Computed example of a mutant assay.
Amino acid sequence: MKAQNIDEVVDGLAGIVREATRAGDRIGYFAALYRQVTVEVRTAIHSGLFDDGARMNRFDTAFGNRYFDAHDAWHRNRTGPRCWREGFGLLENADTVIVQHLLLGVNAHINLDLSVAAARTSPGGAIHSLRRDLLLINDILGRVVLAVQDSVGALSPLLSLLDRVGARTDEQILDFSIRQSRQEAWYNAVLLAGQTEEEREATIDRLDVRAAVLARLVARPSGLVRPALELIRSTESDDVPAVITHLDHAMAGPSVP
């Protein structure tokens, strides 16, 4: 699908969540998180919190369409950006844990898509006027992440094992990934905004390769993290639709229609 505005992004994500819930598809895990972030961004636009609400509507639409394009390409013929293919390719693996799917979505959407959407929304020198509004999204993400952390913790009672093997808990993983990745994404957006189309395509390809490498580390961890994840998985629910519904209600907002 191609969204024309943020309302259509929210509707498109709600449709993916709804279909994933019906089919028991783990693609609904990240889609539920992303839907709630987008709803919060839309509320902030309507509340006049951004310097330029119309511009943020355009940005969020471009951002959302990056996800829809990757989603559709994967379902059509298993193509699309490398980093998204790494995440989507793990969806049918029943040995994965919830937080892995969330991280894989966050990785691809922020480490690749955010920079591209920002640069295309505000090309050239205009990119610098976008900085404050993008930083405001960090606050929105923080609120959603806090709510999702509680959901993940309730669904993964042994997730704290990751701390004991030198990894990170759900809170630290999500917070670190979002904050660190968004900071890097801003620098990449500035780079992309000043490039020619040919240069931009080469940079996007490099960003995709890097994000795909990070995705493999999340999808196939080594050392003590692997057996810890196996134990964590043994305590998580096998009811994928119930997990999606739980995550999708993390903000205690309206249910998916």
Rank of each mutant, 00 (worst) to 15 (best):
D72L: 07
Y29R: 05
T121R: 09
G87V: 04
G153F: 13
A189D: 03
F59S: 00
A185K: 11
D208Q: 08
D25I: 04
I127G: 07
P81I: 02
L112F: 12
A117C: 02
R182Y: 12
V39E: 12
T43L: 15
P81Y: 10
S160P: 07
L162R: 05
T38K: 06
F176T: 14
A70R: 09
R210I: 01
I244A: 12
H46W: 12
Q100H: 00
V240N: 07
S122V: 08
D139H: 14
L158G: 03
M56L: 07
E8V: 01
N5I: 09
V152S: 02
Q183A: 14
G48V: 05
V243D: 03
N93C: 07
T38P: 04
L217Q: 13
A31R: 02
V148C: 06
A73P: 05
R85G: 00
A202D: 00
I244F: 11
L161D: 06
A119R: 06
D170W: 14
G166Q: 05
G12P: 08
A228C: 00
N77G: 12
N5L: 03
D52N: 02
R233N: 12
H249Y: 02
D25R: 10
G223Q: 06
Q149G: 15
S160D: 13
P241V: 05
L174K: 03
L13S: 04
I178A: 05
S151A: 15
G153Q: 14
S234L: 05
T79F: 12
L159G: 15
N5Q: 09
R35F: 07
D163C: 08
I173K: 13
V145N: 14
L214R: 15
D11G: 04
A54Q: 07
I110P: 08
D72C: 02
E19R: 10
F68W: 06
A23N: 15
R216Y: 08
F88N: 03
T203E: 06
L33E: 02
V256C: 06
R132M: 01
L90Y: 13
A62T: 01
L214N: 15
E198P: 12
I127C: 08
A31Q: 03
G105L: 06
D113G: 11
H101C: 06
A167L: 11
G89D: 05
W74A: 00
T61R: 00
R66Y: 01
Q183H: 07
A202N: 09
A211L: 04
G89W: 04
R76N: 09
R179V: 13
T43Q: 15
V256L: 01
V10C: 00
H246F: 14
R226D: 13
A193V: 02
A119T: 05
L33I: 12
H128A: 15
S237A: 08
L247H: 04
E199L: 01
I204G: 08
A44Y: 01
D150Y: 09
P254R: 03
G15M: 02
P81K: 03
K2M: 12
A167E: 11
L207G: 09
R210Y: 07
W74Q: 10
A242T: 01
L247C: 10
N57Q: 03
D72V: 00
D163L: 12
P254G: 03
R85H: 09
L141C: 06
I27N: 09
D170M: 15
V10Y: 03
G87P: 04
D69K: 13
